[in-house]
Amino acid sequence: MLAMTLLLCVAMIGAALVAIRTDGLPVSILAAGLLSLLASVVFLVLASPDVAMTEAAIGSGLTTFLFFFVLGRVRSGEREGGEHD
């Protein structure tokens, strides 16, 4: 259990770093969705099945799609640039 938690936590931090550092916005959004999915497993390990379900359905499901709806509208106009300073 301890090893699994450690692994999950390392993967979560990795996903978060990818989400804020990567160049493409779709990758960033998907990494944030993956982070939410891993977080829902962590909630399960922490004996909170209710929260795990909510996070899986809302955090990783609906939020990701909301981002993609907006991204799909925006991308037709602009190639993103000037991401980092």
Binding site: I20, S28, I29, A32, E83, H84
Partner: peptide
């Protein structure tokens, strides 16, 4: 980050 969408992504990470 300078991109608004990416700032929102970062906010959801902090939220989690």
């Amino acid at each position: 980050n300078h991109n608004l969408l990416r700032m929102i992504v970062a906010f959801t990470i902090a939220d989690t």
